[in-house]
C-alpha cells in the first residue's frame, strides 16, 4: 500500500515538475507586460508558500500514520483520552493567521497595482480602446484614431492601454493572458482594464466567460508593435479601409463568427458605450449627443425585441 502512495505522489510531482519546467513556459507564467508580471509573481509566490503548507501537512500525516498504526503497537495499548491543548490550538491558528496576513498584504497591494495605470508607464498618455463583444466577436474601437477593427487588436508597445469593456449580449470576459488578467464586459455598464505590452510581439486573446454556442472560438489576435509602426498602421487604415456605417455595424452584430475586418470611424458615434459617469462635466456636449443617439438605439432595440416576441 505504501508503494502505491509513493507512486501516486511521484506521478503528481513528476507531472507538475515536467510541465512547469517544460520546454514551453505556461502562458500566464510568461508575462509580456507589467500587469501580467505582477500577477505571475503573486502566483509563483503563493505556489511556493502553499507547497510548503502541503508538505508540512503531508509530513505530519505520514509520520503519525507510520508511528501510530495498530500493527506497530502492542495489543493491550489503549490510546489515551486527550481533550486538546490551548497552546497547540493557538499555534495551529497563529501560523495560518500570519500566513493569511502576509498574503492579504500582497493581495491588496497587487489589487491596487492591477487596477491602475501599469507600473512604469504612468507618464505615458494611455491609448484608449473600446473593446466590445457581440456573439461571438470582438469589436475594437479607437476613438482618438477614429478607426475600428473586428477580431484583431493592434497596440503600441511601451505605452499604457486603457480598455473600456462592454458587451452587446451575454457577459463576456476580455482576456489577454500574457498582458494581464481578464475583466468582464457587460451590456449595461463599462468596465476598465489597464494593460501594457513591454515589447512588440504576437499574442493571443479571448473571451474567457461562457457566452453560448460560439464561445469556444470567440478569440482574437493581438499584435504589439512599435509606436511608429502603430501610427503608420493607423494612417494606412485611414487610406484604405471603408467607413463603418450603422447598417454595416448591425450586420456585424448578427450572431456568428467573422474573420478580421477594418473600418474607419467607430460605432461609438451611433451606438455609444453604456457609460454612466454622470458625475463628470468635461464631456457634457458629447453627452447630449450620446443620449439622443442612445434613444434611437433603444427604439431600434425594442423593434428587435418585438421581432423576437413574434417568433
Amino acid at each position: 500500500m505504501k508503494i502505491k502512495v509513493k507512486w501516486a505522489l511521484l506521478t503528481m510531482i513528476f507531472t507538475i515538475a515536467t510541465v512547469l519546467t517544460g520546454c514551453e513556459p505556461l502562458l500566464v507564467l510568461d508575462p509580456k507586460g507589467p500587469q501580467a508580471k505582477t500577477q505571475a509573481d503573486d502566483i509563483m509566490l503563493s505556489i511556493w508558500l502553499m507547497s510548503g503548507i502541503v508538505i508540512v501537512v503531508l509530513a505530519i500525516l505520514v509520520f503519525v500514520l507510520i508511528k501510530y498504526r495498530a500493527s506497530k503497537q502492542s495489543d493491550d495499548y489503549e490510546p489515551p483520552h486527550i481533550e486538546g491543548s490551548l497552546l497547540v490550538e493557538a499555534i495551529c491558528i497563529g501560523i495560518p493567521v500570519i500566513i493569511v496576513i502576509f498574503l492579504s498584504f500582497v493581495s491588496v497591494k497587487s489589487n491596487y497595482e492591477v487596477e491602475a495605470t501599469p507600473a512604469g508607464y504612468e507618464d505615458t498618455k494611455p491609448l484608449i480602446v473600446y473593446a466590445s463583444s457581440s456573439n461571438w466577436k470582438w469589436h475594437f474601437s479607437y476613438p482618438e484614431e477614429d478607426i475600428e477593427t473586428v477580431n484583431y487588436l493592434y497596440i503600441p508597445a511601451g505605452r499604457a492601454i486603457e480598455f473600456k469593456l462592454y458587451s452587446y449580449g451575454p457577459i463576456t470576459s476580455f482576456w489577454i493572458p500574457q498582458l494581464g488578467g481578464q475583466k468582464y464586459a457587460m451590456a449595461d455598464m463599462v468596465t476598465t482594464l489597464h494593460l501594457a505590452a513591454d515589447n512588440p510581439g504576437e499574442l493571443q486573446g479571448r473571451n474567457a466567460n461562457f457566452s453560448g454556442a460560439g464561445f469556444a472560438k470567440n478569440t482574437f489576435e493581438v499584435t504589439a508593435m512599435s509606436p511608429t509602426e502603430f501610427d503608420e498602421w493607423v494612417e494606412e487604415v485611414h487610406e484604405t479601409a471603408e467607413p463603418l456605417t450603422e447598417e454595416k455595424f448591425d450586420e456585424l452584430l448578427e450572431p456568428g463568427h467573422l474573420g478580421r475586418s477594418t473600418y474607419t470611424g467607430t460605432h461609438l458615434e451611433f451606438s455609444p458605450a453604456p457609460e454612466h459617469d454622470h458625475g463628470s462635466t468635461e464631456s457634457d456636449s458629447s453627452h447630449t449627443k450620446v443620449e439622443s443617439d442612445h434613444e434611437n438605439h433603444e427604439s431600434s432595440n425594442s423593434d428587435e425585441e418585438s421581432d423576437h416576441a413574434n417568433h
Binding site: V28, A36, T38, Q39, A40, D42, I43, S46, L103, V106, S107, S110, N111, E113, V114, S173, P177, G180, G181, Q182, K183, A208
Partner: peptide
Amino acid sequence: MSAADYQYH
C-alpha cells in the same frame, strides 16, 4: 488573491 484571480478566473 484577487489580482492573481484575474488570471485564474
